[in-house]
C-alpha cells in the first residue's frame, strides 16, 4: 500500500486522504495511518509546490556546482556534505560517482549572489579542493513535469 500511496502523492501532494483512499480502493483510516507513519519515518519528507519561477516576475537564478573535496578520516563525505547542506541557499546536495564528488544546487536572487556564496562560503572550506559553477539558463522540465508545454485535449468530444 505504501508504494501505491507514494506514487499518487508524488504527483499530487494536495489530494485529500478521502479521495486517495477511493482511488486506491483502501480504507480511509488505514491510508491516513500509513501516511502518518511515513511522515514520522521521514519517507515522506514534505509537501512542496512545483513552481515555474520563469513564469513569474520574481528574479531567481539556479546554479549547479561541481565540488571536489578531500574526505575526512573516519567521517567520509557525510560531515563535509553536512557543512554544505546547512546553508539555506543550498537547494540540493548529492554525492556523485565520477570526476567530482558533490553536486550542489544553489538558488539565489542574482548571479552575483550565487558567485559570492561560492567564493565566500564554499570554495574556502578546508576540504574543498575545487569548484565549477554552471548557471541554469532555462528549465524545461523539473521533477518529472514539463514546464514549457501547453497541454490541451485534442480528442473529439464523442467517439465510439
Amino acid at each position: 500500500m505504501r508504494e501505491k500511496i507514494l506514487n499518487v502523492l508524488e504527483k499530487n501532494g494536495r489530494i485529500s486522504v478521502h479521495d486517495l483512499a477511493i482511488l486506491l480502493g483502501e480504507d480511509e483510516i488505514e491510508v491516513a495511518n500509513c501516511i502518518g507513519d511515513m511522515e514520522r519515518e521521514n519517507v515522506i519528507c514534505g509537501y512542496h509546490t512545483l513552481i515555474n519561477w520563469d513564469a513569474t516576475t520574481e528574479e531567481k537564478v539556479t546554479a549547479l556546482i561541481e565540488v571536489k573535496v578531500t574526505p575526512q578520516r573516519g567521517m567520509g563525505f557525510d560531515k563535509i556534505a553536512e557543512r554544505i547542506y546547512k546553508f539555506s541557499e543550498v537547494h540540493a546536495v548529492y554525492l556523485m560517482s565520477g570526476a567530482f564528488d558533490f553536486t550542489v544546487i544553489i538558488e539565489g536572487k542574482t548571479m552575483r549572489g550565487v558567485a559570492q556564496f561560492v567564493s565566500d562560503k564554499l570554495a574556502p572550506m578546508e576540504e574543498v579542493q575545487s569548484t565549477a559553477t554552471h548557471f541554469v539558463l532555462k528549465k524545461y522540465k523539473d521533477h518529472g513535469t514539463i514546464l514549457v508545454a501547453e497541454s490541451s485535449d485534442e480528442r473529439m468530444l464523442i467517439t465510439p
Binding site: R155, L157, I158, T159
Partner: peptide, 10 residues
C-alpha cells in the same frame, strides 16, 4: 461542454 464521451485514452 465537458465530455466524458470519448472512447480513447487520454
Amino acid at each position: 461542454a465537458i465530455s466524458l464521451g470519448v472512447g480513447e485514452p487520454d
